[in-house]
Simulated assay, not measured.
Amino acid sequence: MILGQSLSQIVVLVIAVILSMSIHEAAHGLVSYWFGDPTARQAGRLSLNPLAHIDWSGLLCLLLFGFGWAKPVPVDPSYYKDPKAGMIWTAFAGPVANFLLGFVCVFLYYLLLKLAPGFAFGTVGSFVESVFATTAILSTGFGIFNLIPVPPLDGSKILFAFLPDQEYYRVTRGTPWMYILFIALLWSGLISGPIGMLRGAMIDAFSSAAMFLLGM
């Protein structure tokens, strides 16, 4: 992703990646904490401090190859009154946080254009606008990607929670073919098209909502 890009574009991309990953992981930890699990809080993972969440190898892979990962937030479903329900909401929290971040960035993008168009088209303003736009696109795509129901993505944790107990505890331990499938999906490029279409549709919806709220 960073090959052939300017230093300014690389900085924008790094900011967008760090924001998207940090809010995703913090949301997992926060919702798990709300359900009674202190594990993430004890590990210092309820913070929005990027250093608490970034896996530097995952960040480098995302910048170089277009996919990566953050440090998974530790959660312990045994603290939940209903482990399956708690796991659904905890897993769903990350993508939802990404979608909210995407909308906020789109809203701020249009707000800046409306209130300070001269600044928005200046050197500093263009950089800020690029951060908003890139973060919106990347965060929304990251949220969609994580809803794919293949381990270790969040979508699998949501889907598996609807299985009978015996099957649920078996598949949540993971099997080699699941991770092979995940790697194959990444390298095949089969998911990039659908994710791009969904991301574009969501960004268009965010833009329409933001312009409506701002009277543009």
Rank of each mutant, 00 (worst) to 15 (best):
W34K: 07
S139H: 02
M197C: 12
Y169L: 01
L115Q: 03
V31G: 12
L19C: 03
W177L: 14
Y168Q: 07
V128D: 13
L7K: 12
L48M: 07
K81A: 12
T172N: 05
Q166G: 13
P151T: 04
L138D: 00
D154L: 14
S32K: 00
I158C: 12
L185D: 07
L62D: 00
I23H: 11
R199S: 15
F121Y: 13
V106M: 03
P117M: 03
S6N: 06
L112R: 01
I195W: 10
L112F: 15
R170S: 13
M87P: 11
T134S: 10
S208A: 14
Y33H: 15
I195N: 03
I2K: 00
L48R: 02
D37Q: 11
F35N: 07
A70Q: 05
P74F: 12
I54H: 02
V150K: 01
T90E: 07
S22G: 04
S6F: 10
K81F: 15
P77I: 01
S126K: 13
V73E: 01
A161H: 01
A93M: 02
G102I: 04
G193M: 09
K71S: 12
S6I: 08
S47A: 03
I137W: 11
A26R: 00
V96K: 07
G193C: 09
V17P: 01
V171L: 14
L51S: 09
V128E: 10
K114W: 03
A43G: 11
P164Q: 13
I15A: 12
V11P: 04
G193K: 12
A85I: 14
P38R: 03
A52P: 00
L147Y: 01
A209G: 08
Q166M: 15
I23S: 14
L198I: 06
F212H: 09
A93Y: 02
L48H: 08
G196I: 11
E129R: 07
G118M: 00
G122F: 08
F132I: 06
V14Y: 10
I2A: 05
V17E: 00
A116H: 13
V131Q: 05
V75Q: 09
L159P: 09
M1N: 10
L100R: 01
L63E: 00
G155S: 11
A93N: 04
R45Y: 11
F142E: 01
P149W: 09
I10L: 02
N49H: 06
G36F: 02
C61H: 06
R45A: 11
P38E: 03
D76T: 09
